[in-house]
Structures are given as structure tokens and as C-alpha cells.
Design a binder for these strands. Sequence first.
DNA 1: TTGAAACATGAACCAACATTCAACTTAGAA
DNA 2: TTCTAAGTTGAATGTTGGTTCATGTTTCAA
Lengths: 210, 210
Amino acid sequence: MATEYRDPIESKDKQPRTARGLKTKRKLLDAAALEFGEKGFHEASITGITQRAGTALGSFYTYFDSKDELFSALVKDMSMRVKSHAAGAMTEWQDAFQREKQALEAFMNFAREHKEIYRIIDESEFVDPQSYRLHYEETAKRIFERLQEGSAAGDFRDGLEEAHAWAIMGMNVFLGMRYGIWSEEKSAVDIADLANGILADGIAAKKGQG
Amino acid sequence: MATEYRDPIESKDKQPRTARGLKTKRKLLDAAALEFGEKGFHEASITGITQRAGTALGSFYTYFDSKDELFSALVKDMSMRVKSHAAGAMTEWQDAFQREKQALEAFMNFAREHKEIYRIIDESEFVDPQSYRLHYEETAKRIFERLQEGSAAGDFRDGLEEAHAWAIMGMNVFLGMRYGIWSEEKSAVDIADLANGILADGIAAKKGQG
DNA sequence: TTGAAACATGAACCAACATTCAACTTAGAA
DNA sequence: TTCTAAGTTGAATGTTGGTTCATGTTTCAA
């Protein structure tokens, strides 16, 4: 038989059509987040995921095409969760500096409570580079918008570029890794204050010091 | 037969003993850096490495115990190379700010010329977490020492902590990734200037602006 | 009630390497 | 020149784990 016709929509369509299916898919997704978070992509196994989820091995392929596809879906989901958590923490703000401080503090607390999310996003650099780039590009864009608003409000100086957003993001990510994931020896507030100090004044000696 | 005695030194010893052996090991190391850099740890194969090196598959195990062991050795080697490259770029300096600028500029240029090194170090977070932590902890320590020297010289303010070093390192790493590896739309000097601007003055509006 | 679509199950399949090994070649000290 | 340790070779082995599939069960609209 020649190559048979496949509806591109149908072929992608592994969405559950009943309440039962939805529940199973949810269980698999949650289990996968744990498994990937604990073991990393390559050490994680489909068997491990279905065991955690309490389903049969084969059920996995009812909802996902492959291990990679699942991981990719997960990265997008986590990316969104980080984003909305941060957004939720910055609803009200007086000045732009305080808003950045809140953003970092929220990020650090989120990282602590969801270490597996941090790991999945980070590992996507190698498993699903596209999603990785997208995640950070969008995050940088969001920071950049805040920078522009801050400039307009007179809190930040003029002429800030997207690269400034990348610098701030890098600061936040590394502080989150070191003081959020690796150890909790310092409080999120203290770290956020410290980072804010850099943004506010830099690290130069004050006039008359030294 | 019971477990036989193995001299711990001998068992580790896969060092070449002739010029020929040394040359082969060198070829394997270089080939491995390329293979891991291009494909990542899991996609890379021993076969691919030995093919690049132009040796037989079995020769690999004359010099390395396993794929993991080789990767680990490579990470340590790369880490050292980054370190010494940066050190070489900071020999002479007037003020501490300029030194930091040179460090970032050197790092960015190095990343551009050796994208595979960047990738290998980054992937070690998942393949050899120990080496990954060690790399960044030592880098942070070195930055922190520079901060202290800068304070003593009257360029930087007092009271800088190790966390400041982590913040600066995060900035540098992300700027290196975005403007060194992903695209070269901006020159290393421009990015280094921009980062230095943050360290010097922060991003607050100047008095009388806005 | 009923029948077809959706869903669940887990044994079996299979390809992809990492690793081993026994036979062979080369180097270089004596 | 000779002999042994060092180095080379690549076919064979073994294991792991993603994916498939035939069979059985549940759901729910008509």
C-alpha cells in the first residue's frame, strides 16, 4: 500500500475526549514533572512516569507521541507557570525598583518550592533548545518592558536596552540557583535587596569613601 | 574466585607511556570536545569520537574508563581553560572597574571562539553536577576576590558579599550566551561597557532627569 | 439497552550504543 | 637484533528502555 493520507490535525490529536481521559493525562503530566525533575531527562524513564502515575505503560502513548514531545509540552507549561507566578507577585507597586525587587523575590521563592521546574527548564537547553530560547527571550522581553515603564516613570534612567534586561535576568537566574536551589542560607528578601542595591547604585565607592 | 585485589593507583592508571600513546589520547580528547560540543552528551557516541579521532573504537578504552569519565575530565579541562584565558586578559589594570570590563570582554570572546566549551560546561549541570558546581563556585570565588581588592583600592564600595559575585557572574554568563553564542549582533566591547555601566552607576535615573 | 469510540493494559519487539576481549602490531630498551 | 610492554583493532556481547500492538474494559450518546 502506498503512503496513506493522514489528516495533520487528527494525527496530532491526542487530546482526551472524556473526563476519564483528562484525569489520566493530568496524572501523567504531574508524574512526569516529578520524574524529570528528580532524575533529569535521560535518567527518567517512561516506565518510571507511568508507575508514579499509577497507569499502565501503554497508556502513556494514548496521550503523548514520544518522550521528547512530553518533555517539550512540560517545558512550555512550566515556563508559563513561572511567568504567571511572577506576574501575580507584582500587581501593585509604587516605584520600578520595588517592582524588580518583588519580581526577584517571587522568582526565588518559586524556585525553592518547585525545584523540579527549575531543573526542567534548565535541561531544556539540551533536550528542546527551541523552548529554552523562547522561554528566556520572552522573559527578557518582559523585563525590558518593565525597564521602559520604569524609565517613563522617571525611576530608571533613559537609554536602557534589551541587553540590560538580559543582564538583570542573568543575575536573577544565578542568584536563584545559588541561594534558592542549592542552599537556603539566605532569605529571599535579603538576596532581592542585595540585587536591588546593584541596580539602584551599582557597586562603586561612594564619594568620600575609601 | 573471590573479589580480587586491585591496586587503586594502578586501576586508575590509564596514562599513556609512550609518545604514540600520548598522541592518540590527545586526538581522542580533541575529538571528544568536538563531538560533545556539537551533539551534546547523550547524542554523542564513542564511535563518533573515535571516528573523528581516526582511531579504532577499542582504543578509546585504552585511555578512558567510560564515557562519563571522559566527559568529567573534559569539563575540568574546559573549566581550567576558561579560567586561564580570563586571567591572561586581566594582567594589567588601573582600576577595578576596568578589570571587570576586561574580564567580561575576554569571556565573551572566548565563548565565541569556543562555543563547544560553553556547551560542555553547561551540560555538566546534568551529566556531572559536581564539576558544574565546582566550576561556578570557584569562578564566583575569584570574582569575589577581585571585588575585595577593588574595595581595598577604593574603587568599589565596602560590604560587598559573595552574593554580589554570583550576581555579576550571572550577568556575565547570560550576556555571554545571548550576545556571544546565540548571536554576534553586538560587539563584545559594547556589551562589556553596558554591563560595566550597571556596576558603576546602577540603572537609576540621574538627579534632575525624568 | 447497546454498540462504537475512547481508553487501559503490559508483554514483546527492536534498535542503539557502551563496553569487552582476544588477536595482532609497534616501540624502544637491553 | 630481540623480546616484552604498550598500543591498536573491530567484531561480538549485553543491556537498557522507547515504542508498538493485540486484547480487554469502560464510557456515553442514541
